[in-house]
């Protein structure tokens, strides 16, 4: 697909020097009313590289992202696989109704993926797994679902526990969660990446099973909308 472009460029006297560039202008919007997103990781990569796959166990790198919002491991994995990576476009958390934008040159990489953890949850993350980057310039919209990494029981106790393997929810950034919950569950039925069933929550902010507020910390899919503008590299 690149060869005709190069020939075309060579035939134009004022044509810019074409490299194997593919610039994407991306805007990420939080569709929820009460969920915060940890720093996003966005990557252009090849067909053999995945941040996650449904029905497969999460990698340890994804576990760190989904349980604690730590994208460093996923970033290293992607970089090691030759991916083009953009980190933390929002410069921190993406609040309800918030948007953040970035520009990424995915070069010759054919696929786009992104991911971020939902707070307050135990191990929920939103993600795009290997969206084929179109060759036709234009604006594309992607609705993004919330997944459960399957690595931690959804006890819904806000205790600061964000390290992989440590129970609990690291934080409720809206400062609107409860305390002293006894825990919703200690088991995780589906230990592969799957669609998140949602927080259970309760309406007892000083006790009950859950520290999550069942009137606030809810969502239905999709939780993120992504606008991708594929720029015309021949202009």
């Amino acid at each position: 697909m690149k060869i005709p472009k190069i020939i075309l460029a060579a035939s134009l006297a004022v044509a810019p020097v074409l490299t194997n560039a593919q610039q994407l202008d991306i805007t990420i919007t939080n569709l929820t009313q009460g969920i915060y997103f940890t720093p996003f990781i966005v990557a252009g990569h090849d067909a053999n590289t995945r941040i996650f796959q449904v029905g497969q166990a999460a990698s340890t790198e994804l576990q760190a992202l989904a349980e604690g919002g730590d994208i460093s491991g996923v970033s290293a994995m992607l970089t090691g696989a030759g991916a083009v990576v953009s980190e933390n476009p929002a410069g921190g958390l993406l609040a309800p109704a918030g948007s953040t934008s970035l520009t990424i040159d995915t070069g010759t990489q054919e696929y786009l993926s992104l991911s971020s953890m939902l707070l307050p949850t135990n191990d929920a993350f939103a993600g795009i797994d290997s969206w084929k980057i179109p060759s036709t310039p234009g604006v594309y919209w992607i609705n993004v679902n919330a997944y459960d990494a399957g690595t931690e029981a959804n006890d819904e106790i806000v205790n600061g526990g964000g390290m992989p393997g440590v129970p609990g929810i690291p934080a409720a950034p809206g400062m609107d969660a409860g305390t002293n919950a006894t825990g919703v569950t200690t088991t995780e039925t589906n230990q592969t990446v799957h669609i998140h069933r949602g927080n259970l929550g309760d309406d007892d902010l000083t006790g009950g099973k859950s520290d999550v507020d069942n009137r606030v910390h809810r969502w239905l899919n999709p939780v993120i909308r992504v606008r991708v503008e594929v720029l015309d590299q021949t202009l």
Partner: peptide, 12 residues
């Protein structure tokens, strides 16, 4: 119980 709850999509 809470484990049986689901959101869409349910299959791919």
């Amino acid at each position: 119980n809470e484990s049986h709850r689901f959101d869409n999509p349910v299959i791919r």
